[in-house]
Structure formats: C-alpha cells, structure tokens
Amino acid sequence: MKEPRTPRFEDVTVGETLPPLKFDVTPTSLVMYAGATWDFHRYHYDADFVTKLGMPAPFMDGQMAGALLARQLMQWGGADAFVRKLSYRLRGTVYAGDSIVLQGTVSDKCVEQGRALALCSLSMTKSDGTQIVRNATAVVELGRRSP
C-alpha cells in the first residue's frame, strides 16, 4: 500500500496543477458505481433500453462525475485533506466506452476561520476533446506544517 502524499498548506502554490486523473468508463465501472450507490436504473447498464431512448450506450450518473472530482481532490490533498465545497455543471453525457481525464489547478489559497483552504478549478474532458465539466470550483481544507 502506498502512503498518501500530504502536501501542507504552506507548500501549496497558487497556479500549481493537480495530478491529472484518467478514468476509463466501462460497463463494469458503471455497474460498480450503480451497485455502490444502490442505483439500479436501467440507464447505467441496459444497452437496449438506452438505445430506444436515442442514447449510444449506458451512461454515467451525474453524481459519479462529482465523486471522481472529489477523488482527485482527496488524492492530491493527502491524508489530512477534506473537501469543503464542490460545484460543477455537466455540459454533456459520459457513456460506457468513454475515457475521461480530470485536470485541476490551485486558483487561490487562504486561511478562513482557522481552516487552511486551497481553492481549485477543475475540468473533465473526454479523450475525443468533448468537455464534460469546465471550471468546476472546489475548496479543499489542507493539513498545516507543525509549528
């Protein structure tokens, strides 16, 4: 098992990039997320059903996009991190068979009510260039260096 990296608030610089997160959306990953969230809607696994609705393939639940954005933030922030806020708008649909990349940058940092916060701007893009999320915003609380 690898130890999580733990950037301290003091070491984070505005403009730094978060490690990109690549995720292959497969029938398996859609079914795993559907199962883990007790979401048994046919949208996420029934190819015949979604074809009749005019969709090319089963598709990702919108909140799975949020879950992946949060995963990227938590991985970057390390063992003491906690996501405080996350806002995003979906500009498209992610289907089984798509590959997506999540990217992020630190847009600001501040201490508020004793909390060391990094503000991040995030995006989610399919490998064909389609933007699914643009300029999502997040606030991540980080650990601080011991005095």
């Binding site: 098992m1 690898k2 130890e3 999580p4 995720f23 990953s29 795993m32 997320y33 199962g35 883990a36 969230t37 799975m64 879950a67 992946l68 995963r71 938590m74 991985q75 063992a79």
Partner: peptide
C-alpha cells in the same frame, strides 16, 4: 465499495490504522 467503484485506493477510506 464506493471507493472501489471509483478506482480510489486512498487509505483514508479502508485502512483504519493509517
């Protein structure tokens, strides 16, 4: 289960000691 579905191996979600 939720972490596994996201390919998320962050030990905060499964390793109590850590």
């Amino acid at each position: 289960y939720f972490a596994l579905a996201l390919g998320d191996d962050n030990p905060l979600h499964h390793d109590e000691a850590l």
